[in-house]
């Protein structure tokens, strides 16, 4: 009896969770398929779907170019952030040296600034370096918020992994580096997945820098929202279509990363 109740409670909890997190996205999908007249009839679940909003987003506003730019920037930035941040996190978690906490805090400091305050200095720098409106500029600037995040998140995960694991590996003839890549990184896979996906998402959705530092060649998806807030009001259908187009690549990346990094992980039941 108690078992049944517990199972029912868990089912209800799961249902509530899926409703809260999933419904707004479902609503966005439905809105994107509605003609304008159906927008003002929220209770109408059955309506003739239209792809007009997607056609407008793709053809009239050329959203695919934005998606391509976002993909280049977010991928490049995630790879670079992980390469820099994960190694730094390992150093900060495993080696005791003077000023270690100061270094960690200094890295975090970069992330405390509201991005809107840094737009102007970055604009001047980019202008002097002739990097305005390029992918590489956004890839580099996004390091300012993603590297601190990777360092602090991965450091916490590394500290959860017992030191004995790599000590055993060192005794067995591994170098520091191979102990890191063969023993520590695999043990930290769930954290690596969560951190990598988060980096990609933050870079994919960044708005302020992208808006001010790009003009044509490197404009990213979030900046396209400006098209759809008009003086006549918000174009709900088109905005929703943009939202669906913008979310798809992220979900694909998350699913692929999940498969690559976490396949079979639940079966192993965590580290032994």
């Amino acid at each position: 009896m108690r078992r049944v109740l517990l199972r029912a409670a868990r089912g209800a909890g799961m249902g509530a969770v899926l409703l809260f997190f999933g419904f707004p996205i479902l609503w966005m999908l439905l809105t994107s398929l509605k003609e304008r007249i159906y927008l003002y009839q929220p209770g109408r679940w059955l309506f003739p779907p239209t792809l007009d909003n997607y056609m407008a987003a793709l053809v009239k506003y050329g959203i695919l170019d934005y998606v391509r730019n976002s993909a280049i920037v977010a991928t490049g930035n995630t790879v670079l952030s992980l390469a820099v941040g994960v190694t730094a996190a390992y150093g900060l978690s495993r080696f005791a040296f003077r000023g270690r906490e100061a270094v960690a805090l200094g890295i975090l400091l970069a992330r405390l600034f509201p991005t809107i305050t840094l737009v102007i200095p970055f604009f001047v720098l980019a202008f002097l370096l002739r990097l305005l409106d390029t992918h590489i500029l956004l890839i580099l600037i996004y390091l300012t918020f993603n590297v601190p995040f990777v360092v602090w998140a991965m450091r916490a995960y590394f500290e959860d992994i017992p030191k004995e694991i790599e000590e055993a590996a060192l005794v067995d003839g591994c170098t520091r580096f191979t102990a890191f890549t063969r023993c520590i990184l695999p043990a930290a896979r769930p954290g690596l997945f969560a951190t990598g996906v988060m980096c990609f998402i933050l870079a994919w959705n960044e708005f302020n820098y992208a808006l001010f530092l790009t003009s044509r060649a490197a404009k990213t998806v979030p900046t396209a929202i400006a098209f759809f807030r008009t003086e006549r009001g918000i174009l709900w259908g088109e905005v929703s279509a943009l939202g669906v187009i913008a979310i798809l690549p992220v979900l694909v990346i998350a699913a692929v990363a999940h498969n690559v990094l976490l396949r079979g992980f639940s079966l192993e039941g965590g580290q032994q």
Partner: peptide
């Protein structure tokens, strides 16, 4: 389920904010 729960993260704050404004 994880994928559904991640969805609000995957959407830009601007677009997510607009969707809630609609709701």
């Amino acid at each position: 389920v994880t994928l559904i729960v991640i969805m609000p993260l995957a959407i830009s704050h601007a677009i997510g904010g607009l969707m809630w404004k609609l709701m």
